[in-house]
């Protein structure tokens, strides 16, 4: 895979400079980690929503199932945390198997049906008290281990884990987008019948993308539970785990890889650092207004806007 110099520089800065410069400020680090969690879900969501045109309101289910599977495996079966995180992703894929019938629906019907499915898992987590602890939740979920003398459960350690996850996701997204399947996904956005006519098994393709997206979201959910060490159904399956990423993915940019990430970091940080100070409760209101403004003035999202800005600077120079 080709990687640009700026790309390498950004990765270097993310791995070395951010921990060195901001590592001591745990408030800022926790904001960054939270923004990256949203970014991870936004990227997984964008794989379905931006690339394949399947708008899902149900990703909070994958987030919650991933979290529960990983938490329960570490607490009751003694599985090591990092392995359990991957199994959390697998758990989310298993949950997505139940959602396969929804793939027959399109557009808003798909979005609503998958939202209903997401609710089923929340009810399961609440009612299956013997395993999930019910609505009281699970306390003291194991933290990240210490690896080669480095404490991964520290703010900086958690930051490095989520950063690595995101980089793997970006790589996976890039590979998928540039493959035959990526082209077929984009085509499906235009007309599913036409893609079938050119020989694409669209049902299988949609199912595969749902699995990949569910896996990514599940892993992020599992990361989050070991990061905060606590879990309860209302939190794990909260609608915010899907609404914020959707806002981020749309805000960031249509069909770009970095869009959802840039969108997540921007949206989350601006929301937490500025809007929350202005209006302590209900500050998400401004996000909604901002999204509307974005759709009107730059339907392509933040990324094209940024590029336009740099181009203008070049022209002026």
């Amino acid at each position: 895979m080709k990687m640009s110099k700026t790309g390498l520089a950004v990765i270097f800065a993310a791995y070395v400079l951010v921990p060195l410069l901001l590592g001591s400020n745990s408030y800022v680090m926790s904001l960054i980690v939270a923004a990256m969690i949203i970014g991870g879900i936004a990227l997984a969501w964008a794989l379905l929503g931006n690339l394949g045109g399947m708008v899902s309101f149900g990703h909070s289910a994958f987030f919650g199932v991933g979290a529960y599977v990983s938490a329960i495996l570490t607490m009751k079966a003694g599985v090591p945390v990092l392995a359990a995180m991957l199994l959390g992703g697998v758990g989310a894929v298993v949950a997505s198997l139940a959602m396969l019938p929804v793939l027959r629906l399109r557009g808003p019907y798909f979005a609503l049906a998958i939202l209903a499915y997401a609710h089923i898992f929340k009810i399961l987590a609440t009612e299956w008290t013997s395993v999930t602890g019910g609505s009281a939740g699970l306390a003291s979920v194991p933290r990240f281990p210490t690896l080669m003398g480095f404490d991964l459960s520290s703010k900086t350690g958690s930051y490095l884990i989520v950063l690595s996850l995101l980089l793997v996701f970006i790589a996976a997204y890039r590979v998928i987008r540039s493959s035959h399947y990526g082209i077929a996904l984009r085509a499906m956005h235009d007309s599913e019948d036409a893609t079938r006519v050119v020989g694409v098994n669209s049902t299988l393709l949609k199912a595969l993308m749902l699995f990949v997206s569910a896996f990514m979201t599940g892993v992020i959910g599992a990361f989050n539970v070991h990061y905060i060490n606590f879990l309860e159904p209302d939190y794990a399956f909260s609608g915010l785990w899907v609404t914020l990423p959707i806002v981020a993915a749309i805000f960031g940019g249509y069909r770009t890889i970095l869009g959802p990430l840039v969108g997540a970091v921007t949206v989350y940080l601006v929301d937490q650092l500025i809007f929350k100070n202005l209006i302590p409760s209900g500050h998400q209101l401004i996000l909604g207004a901002l999204l509307v403004a974005m759709i009107i003035f730059s339907p392509g999202g933040l990324m094209p806007l940024l590029r336009k800005g740099t181009r203008r600077k070049h022209a002026a120079a």
Partner: peptide, 26 residues
Amino acid sequence: VAMIPEGRMIFKDMTIEENLMLGAFP
């Protein structure tokens, strides 16, 4: 068997080359 559907059904958001490549998807 290949079909050239009514109303063309080309993929508007993709380049011509990508449209063609999709015709050889299998």
